[in-house]
Design a protein around this nucleic acid. Sequence first.
DNA 1: GCTTTATTTAGATGTTTCTCTAATTAGAGT
DNA 2: ACTCTAATTAGAGAAACATCTAAATAAAGC
Lengths: 89, 89
Amino acid sequence: MGINAVFEALSHPVRRRILALLKDGPLSAGELAGHFDLTKPTLSVHFNKLRDAELVAVERRGTSLIYHLNTSILEEALAGLLSLKDPET
Amino acid sequence: MGINAVFEALSHPVRRRILALLKDGPLSAGELAGHFDLTKPTLSVHFNKLRDAELVAVERRGTSLIYHLNTSILEEALAGLLSLKDPET
DNA sequence: GCTTTATTTAGATGTTTCTCTAATTAGAGT
DNA sequence: ACTCTAATTAGAGAAACATCTAAATAAAGC
């Protein structure tokens, strides 16, 4: 979906906090939802945006969906930001 | 205005391109507008968001407004992204 | 196969975003 | 003061976003 979707996904504080939670290891949708004062459907929409941007990957374990961070796309975003700053790119 | 406004500002491709143009040196509002197929009022709105986020600073020279990049806020955004990835933060 | 648990998709609503045209402000020069 | 140039603010419309409740899907266990 491209770098556009990545920066779009990063623009919402809830989604950045989701990524921060996943930094320490994979978590299920329900475990993630427990950290927010939002309904599960609302969180599910945020998960979708993160997945569309490929910032997270999802894997099913039984009835649960386990989300985990995709660091390589985070690096792409980092590179994108760096390129706004460094003359050589 | 905080890191929120910064990521919000970075979420639009036109605004990221504005920053990329300013990377090589300050430009006036009109010079920047010349790089886009958008009206000047539209660009002006984008300039405002970048200024609110303090990603750019503006200075008047005669009738022109000169925009230039604020690299320190870009670094804050970089740090914010890094903190989503590194365990130690 | 029915029930339970986990999560998502669908539909609705209010808010925000992006873009345009038209009108306004600000400074410079005559 | 008037005019010209540069850029902005104001107002309007369409599209996208964030959130909720209610309904649907998927896997597991009895």
